[in-house]
Nucleic acid binder design. Structure first.
Lengths: 234, 234, 234, 234
DNA sequence: AATGAATGAGAGTTCATTCAT
DNA sequence: TATGAATGAACTCTCATTCAT
C-alpha cells in the first residue's frame, strides 16, 4: 500500500517530449561508470520487471525488488530516484520492445492488410509471451499517465503513418486514421485480455504456453479487414 | 459537480444472483435497519465513488472517504467489510448503470447497425459524464480481477446475444460473436480514453463538458459498420 | 485487542471485601425490574461465558457477546457497566460453582484423606466438563487480579479450615495449612491443565468427553496422601 | 531496578533444535549483520521484557516497547515479524533461563530429595527476582499455547528424567513420574504466586526484595518430601 | 427495556526513502 | 559501489462505549 512517496522537489511533469532516456528528478542519475555498476542496474531492472508484473505497481515493494535482484535495499537508490521512476522506465521499455517486434513483423508485407495481419499476429505473440510485463502498461494509466499516454501515442503514430500511406495508395479507407489507430489498439488489447491474459490468471496452468486460437484470430482479422476495406470496388 | 445522475435507481439490490457473487467476509453485513443508516451508507458510497475516481484505489484512503462523507472513520466498517469490498460494489454498480444506459438507448432501434450506433453513442455519453467512475473499472483489473472480468463478461454477453440474433436475421456477419464483442468493447474503451478521459486529465479544464467530436464518432462507426457489414450484397 | 477501555470515573479497587454480588462503578446497576429484563441479563451472561471461554478476555468483544446473546449491542450496557465488570462477575460465578461442587462431594467423607480424594475427583470432573469456563480464571490473573486472588483465597480458606480440623484431630500432618492449601491447588490446576485442558486444545476431538486417566488420578492421590500422611506412627 | 541478571548468557542461539520450532512467518528474519543491529535487537528485546512484564501481552503495545527501547516504531519490524513472535521468543527465553538456573543449583546434590530442595530454592529465587518476566508464561497459555506447553513440557522432561533415575536408585517412590512432575510444577507455581508475586502486586513496595519465608519453604518441602518418600522401609 | 448507529482513539504493520559506514 | 540499519508517516481495521430514538 502506498504510504507517502516522499515526493521530494521532483519534477513530475517533464513534458514527455524533453525526455531522452528518462530524465527525472533534481539531478539525473548518471549511467553507471563501471561494468559492475552496469550489471547491478540491469539486475535491478530485471527484478523490477518481474515483481511489477506479478504484483502490480502498488503491491510491489522496493525491498521485494532488491531481494529478488540480490542486492541491498539501499543499492536501489544508487541507480534510480524512486519507485515511480523505475516503473516509468519499464513502461517505456515495454513500449519500445513491442513496437520493435511489430515493426519487424510488418517489414516486408506485400500490402497494408497483410501488414495488419502480421502486425497483429506479432502483437498477440508478444502479449502471450510477455504476459506479465504487458499488463504493466494498464496500470501505468493511473500511476504515470504521461508514460501510458506516450506509450499509446507512439503506437498510434506509426499506425497513422502506415494508414495514411495505404490510404493515399488507395488500398484502404478511413475517415480518420487516428480514430482507426485507437480502434485497432483497443481491439488488440481486449482480445489479448480475454484470450491470453485472463486464462492464465484464472487457471493454475500459469506457466503454460498460451496461443490465441486460430478461429479467434481469423474472426478478428476478418472484422478488421472489412472495417478497413474499400467499399466493394463498385 | 455533475457526477452520475444515478441512471437507474442504482444497484443496492441487484439481481439477487449477483448478490451471491459479491458476498464477502465472515458474516455478510445486513442492510441498514433504519433510514438514517441507509442514508449514511449511501453517503459513504457516494464519497467513495468520488475519491476512488479521483485518486485511484491505492491512493484513496478510508480516512479520505469518511472525511468526505462527513462521518467518523469507524463508521465505514459498519457498512463495509473492507476497502476492497466497497470498491467491488462500486465496480458492479458502474457496470449495471452502464449496461442500463446502453440498453435503454438501443431499445427500439430499427436494425442492428442502428442499434450499434445508438449504443455507442450512449456509451460515449456515459463515459464523458461519469469520467471518473468509469476509470474505476480499469484499475479493477489489478485490484479485483474477478469483478473486472465479470464486468466485461456481462457486457460481452448482451453483445453476443444481440449479434447472434442479427446474424441469424441476416443483417450482419461475424465469424465469432464473442471475438467481435471484445473487439467492439476495445474500440469503445480506447476511443473513450483518447478523446474523453485524457483530455480532461491533462488540461485544467477538468470540470468542463466533453463530447466526442462528431467526425471521430462517425469514423469509428464507419469502421464498425463495415467491419460488421454483409459482404456487399452480391 | 485492547483499545482504550474508557476507564470512566470507575472505582477499580473495591477492597474485594465490601462487594456484595459485585458492586462496581459510579452507580450500581439495579437488578432488572422485569422478568423480561432478568431473562435478557441471563442471556448475556451465558453468552459471555461461552465467548470469554473460547476467545479469552481480550479477543472477546462485546459485539460478539451480544450477537451470540441475540440482543443489540447497546443492550449490554443496560445490565453491565463494562466488559471488565461482566468478566469479574463470571469469575466469581465459576468460583462459587466450583466450591459448591467440591463441598457437596466432600460432604460426608469418613476421614480427611478420603475427603481429599473425593474433593479432587469432583474438581477434575468440574474442570473436564467446564473446560472453557475454567480457563477463564487463569486469565483473570492479568485482567482482574483482585478477582483471581479472591477466587484462590476463597478456596484456600475452606482448605485451611478443613486441614486444621484434621490436624487437630490428629489424622494428618502439616507444617503450614496455608502452604499446603496452595500446594494442593497447584497440583490440581497443573494436572488438570496437562490431562484435561491441553488435550482438547490440540486435537480436533474438541467436543469429546475427557476424563482424567485412573492411573494418573491414583498417582496424584498417592503423592498427596503421603505428603499429608502422619509420619508412620513410630 | 534489579531486573533479570541474565542468568546464563541468555538465549539467542538456543539449542538449534528449538530454533526450528520458533521460526515463523514467510521468510525467517536473519540475525543482524552488524554489531549495531545486534545491539538494537537486544534493546528491543529487553524493552519488550519489561513492557510485557508490566502490562501483559495485550495491554502492551509495540509503540510502548519501541519508545522504551529508544528506537522508531518501524525498527521493531526489522527484527521481529510480529508482536506475537517476540513474545514467544521471550517465553522461550525465560524457560531456558529458569531451567539453567535450577540445573546449576541441583548439579551436585547428594541425593534426589536434596536436589529437589535445592531446585525449589533456585526456582523460588528466580521467581522472586524475575517476578515480571516470570508472569509472562502464564499469559502465554492464551496467547501462544504451543509456547506455553513447550515450556512446561521441557521442565517436565528433566523432572521425569531425574525422578526415574531416583526411582530406579530406590531413593524415592512414584506411581507416575509425569504426574508427579506436573504436581511439583503446580506446587512451585502456586506457592510462588501466593508469596512472591501477589504481595508485590498489591502493595506499593513494588521494587523491594521479596523472599519466600523460611517456614513456608520448609512446609512445602516437607510436604513434597513425604509425598515422594519411600514408605518407611518397614 | 431495547435498539443500532455513531464515535474516535488507538492498535499492529508496511514501506519509500535516507544515511553512516 | 554497496550495504543494511533506521526512520516515521500513513494505512487499514477494531472495539468499548455513548446516545438518540
Amino acid at each position: 500500500m502506498p504510504r507517502h512517496e516522499h515526493v521530494p522537489p521532483a519534477s513530475q511533469n517533464a513534458t514527455a517530449l524533453d525526455k531522452q532516456a528518462s530524465s527525472k528528478g533534481p539531478g539525473t542519475i548518471p549511467s553507471p561508470a563501471t561494468a559492475r555498476g552496469e550489471l547491478t542496474r540491469r539486475r535491478i531492472l530485471d527484478a523490477a520487471e518481474v515483481v511489477f508484473g506479478e504484483l502490480g505497481y502498488y503491491e510491489a515493494s522496493i525491498s521485494e525488488i532488491t531481494r529478488r535482484a540480490g542486492v541491498a535495499q539501499g543499492t536501489f537508490y544508487i541507480y534510480f530516484h524512486s519507485k515511480r521512476e523505475i516503473f516509468v522506465e519499464l513502461v517505456e521499455d515495454v513500449g519500445e520492445r513491442l513496437r520493435a517486434a511489430t515493426r519487424v513483423a510488418m517489414a516486408d508485407a506485400p500490402d497494408r492488410l497483410e501488414a495488419e495481419r502480421r502486425g497483429f499476429a506479432a502483437f498477440f505473440d508478444f502479449a502471450a509471451n510477455h504476459r506479465r510485463i504487458y499488463s504493466i502498461v494498464q496500470e501505468a494509466g493511473r500511476v504515470a499517465p504521461e508514460a501510458a499516454q506516450a506509450y499509446y501515442r507512439a503506437i498510434s503514430h506509426s499506425y497513422v503513418h502506415g494508414l495514411q500511406i495505404a490510404m493515399e495508395g488507395g488500398t484502404i479507407r478511413t475517415l480518420s486514421p487516428e480514430a482507426t489507430a485507437y480502434a485497432l489498439m483497443g481491439i488488440g488489447h481486449f482480445v489479448a485480455l480475454r484470450w491470453l491474459i485472463w486464462p492464465q490468471e484464472n487457471e493454475e496452468t500459469q506457466e503454460e504456453e498460451v496461443h490465441l486460437p486460430d478461429d479467434i484470430f481469423n474472426a478478428v482479422m476478418d472484422f478488421i479487414t472489412h472495417g478497413l476495406a474499400l467499399p466493394a470496388k463498385e
